[in-house]
Amino acid sequence: MDIGMWTGCPRTGRTLAWAAAIPLLVALLVVLVVSTTDTLPGSPSSFGGIRTLDVHTDHGDVEVVGADVTEVSVTRHAQGAGPRVESWGDGSLTVGLVCDDVGSFCGSIRDTAGSHTDYVFVVPRDIDVTIRSEHGDVTVRGVTGKADARTETGRLRQDPPSPG
């Protein structure tokens, strides 16, 4: 079906098609540029003042290690050119969620078995951690704060914190 049939005018139909295609092409270009870089522009490897860590992934493995540190540090291992989103502020670090401007609607980014990012976080022991993974392995060690870790088909390992 020709889009011109909807508008009654072939020229208007072509204009509408281009008007819809241009934002999609720009969005695709942005995703391509961001997903092919190992570190997002402005994405630090350590984060100060973080009290909660929230990680969502489809295929990426996530390891969180509680230690005697004051900042959250992250090591990223990119597999392919999978999309990656990290946001931080107000004492929280969120990985793998895309939210609207006011945070009222959030959705997980979709990665694949061949195109994803694996994460290793070293965090203060008393941090609160939430991890949701579909197919990735999840490991939580040494965290004394609230730890809520789940995976659908990956392996889950949650060790109690070491004394002292």
Rank of each mutant, 00 (worst) to 15 (best):
D58I: 05
K146Q: 12
A113T: 03
G48W: 11
A81F: 09
R125C: 09
T12Q: 15
A19M: 08
T94Q: 11
D38W: 11
A21L: 13
G103K: 03
G114E: 14
T130I: 02
R51T: 12
V34S: 05
V98K: 03
V30H: 04
T94I: 13
L97M: 09
A27L: 11
Y119G: 09
G142Q: 11
T39H: 14
I109D: 02
P44W: 06
E71A: 15
P160G: 14
G4M: 11
P124V: 10
L25Y: 01
T52E: 15
G164H: 05
W88S: 15
D128I: 07
P44A: 13
V33T: 10
P124S: 11
W18Y: 14
F47R: 13
G80E: 07
L97W: 02
T112H: 12
P41K: 13
T7S: 15
D100L: 00
F121R: 01
G60V: 08
H56V: 04
T94E: 10
V72W: 06
E134K: 12
V34G: 00
D58P: 00
Q158V: 15
D90V: 00
P124W: 08
D159A: 13
T37M: 15
A149K: 03
S162M: 07
A78E: 08
W6A: 13
V69Y: 10
V123I: 08
L156R: 10
C99T: 11
T151K: 02
L156Y: 02
G154V: 12
G107M: 02
V65F: 12
F47C: 12
P124F: 10
R110T: 12
G60I: 07
D61E: 04
A19C: 04
D61P: 09
T70E: 15
E63I: 11
V65S: 09
W88T: 15
A149S: 02
A147Q: 05
S46A: 14
L40T: 13
R110H: 05
E71H: 14
R14Q: 11
P10H: 02
D118H: 09
D148F: 01
D68C: 02
C106L: 07
T151Y: 02
S104F: 04
D61T: 11
D101S: 08
P161T: 12
Q79W: 02
D90H: 13
V85W: 07
V72F: 08
R14N: 01
D128F: 07
D54L: 01
S92M: 03
G66F: 07
V98P: 01
R125I: 05
C106M: 02
R76G: 05
R11A: 14
V74R: 07
W88M: 11
A20K: 01
D128G: 12
G48Y: 12
P83Y: 00
V120E: 08
D126M: 06
T36E: 09
V64S: 06
T70W: 01
E152Y: 05
I131C: 09
S45M: 09
L24H: 00
T75W: 01
Y119V: 04
T130M: 00
S87Y: 00
R76A: 09
